[in-house]
């Protein structure tokens, strides 16, 4: 019961489909996960794996042409997916908020930044007038903008990408939401700026106990901030584990191949790319979606559906050969 109370976000069986010529095509299937208070859960995967669709579903947002076919998204025991639009508008920004990828397009270009933070406070009736102004200044300071009054009065185009993202984070945190969803928040920023934004997010998480769902294709960035990581492939979560466990002992062949493909300063890339081919949504087998690209697949994999199974404490993988392949995977890793 206590453990349940600490869950800020509980997603079960989330299935989202997009309209296509051949009917509804599922892009997210049976996604289930929880994010606890003060926890950062990473959602990793390549483009087209459905991670952004999941991110938007957390706020009850449907991307154009998509439909939630099944599942629940519980935010403090209320199902976001069952809420009417009017309630969602009060929910978004107040109890759950979003930091999207490109700060330049998520800020209004014709409004000074301080005004945009004030708007969040006024919309959710947290503060108004001079109180809102004072609070907005505090928020801009909180996100590490050195000259908060200066930042308040500037238009977005007068700021660097990193400063813009700080303003967006200030807006996302303005109403002290329980959950913040971040969609590739540092993609496109310089490494030094990324470093500072990641540090800021960790500080804010520690200070306010905010739960975060951090969506990114960048495993190295996820490694810096996440407590746990869920790996998605073709709309399905194929592995979930504590960050250290996932990087040290990946059990799903896709996770392993993905990690091997991440460029690193410390080791040269493998001569043969570990992940061959590309994800073809139109050619998915009825069984494991990764089977066509998997180096360890048996003929039976393509016809046998795989579900996440617990394989260790807090560690789940959707590969029926995880036990059998464990030794083999490591033998291969050493042979490299």
């Amino acid at each position: 019961m206590n453990a349940a109370a600490r869950e800020a976000l509980t997603v079960s069986g989330l299935t989202v489909a997009y309209r296509s010529d051949a009917g509804w095509l599922p892009v997210v299937e049976e996604a289930s996960f929880t994010v606890r208070e003060g926890e950062v859960l990473g959602l990793a995967g390549e483009s087209g794996c459905g991670k952004t669709t999941v991110a938007y579903a957390m706020l009850g947002e449907r991307r154009p042409g998509s439909r939630v076919m099944a599942g629940t998204v519980l935010l403090e025991s209320q199902d976001v997916l069952a809420m009417p639009e009017r309630d969602l508008q009060l929910l978004r920004g107040a109890r759950i908020s979003m930091v999207p990828q490109n700060p330049a397009t998520s800020l209004t270009p014709t409004m000074i930044c301080g005004r945009q933070v004030m708007e969040v406070l006024e919309y959710h009736r947290i503060a108004a007038g001079t109180a809102a102004r004072r609070r907005a200044l505090e928020l801009l300071e909180e996100v590490g903008l050195r000259d908060a009054p200066g930042a308040f009065a500037r238009y977005p185009h007068q700021m660097s990408g990193g400063q813009q993202q700080r303003v967006v984070i200030a807006m996302a945190l303005a109403a002290r939401p329980r959950v913040v969803v971040l969609d590739e928040p540092t993609t496109g920023l310089d490494v030094t700026t990324q470093w500072r934004i990641l540090r800021l997010l960790r500080q804010l998480r520690d200070r306010f106990g905010t739960a975060m769902l951090y969506v990114s294709h960048d495993l190295a960035a996820l490694a810096q901030i996440c407590d746990r990581i869920a790996v998605m492939y073709a709309g399905r979560i194929v592995e979930v584990a504590a960050t250290r466990v996932l990087f040290a002992a990946p059990r799903h062949p896709y996770t392993r191949a993905l990690l091997a493909a991440v460029p690193s300063l410390d080791r040269p890339p493998e001569a043969e790319p570990a992940l061959k081919g590309s994800l073809r949504r139109d050619e998915l087998p009825p069984g494991c979606p990764f089977a066509p690209r998997c180096a360890f697949a048996l003929p039976a994999c393509a016809v046998t559906p795989q579900a996440l199974v617990a394989i260790g404490v807090g560690h789940e993988a959707a590969c029926w050969r995880w036990r059998e392949l464990d030794g083999g995977l490591r033998a291969l890793a050493h042979a490299d």
Binding site: T192, W195, A220, S264
Partner: peptide, 15 residues
Amino acid sequence: LLAAVPRLDGGSMAP
């Protein structure tokens, strides 16, 4: 620049 490159072992993350 090199110190800011995120590493897969995460923990190190030298400032």
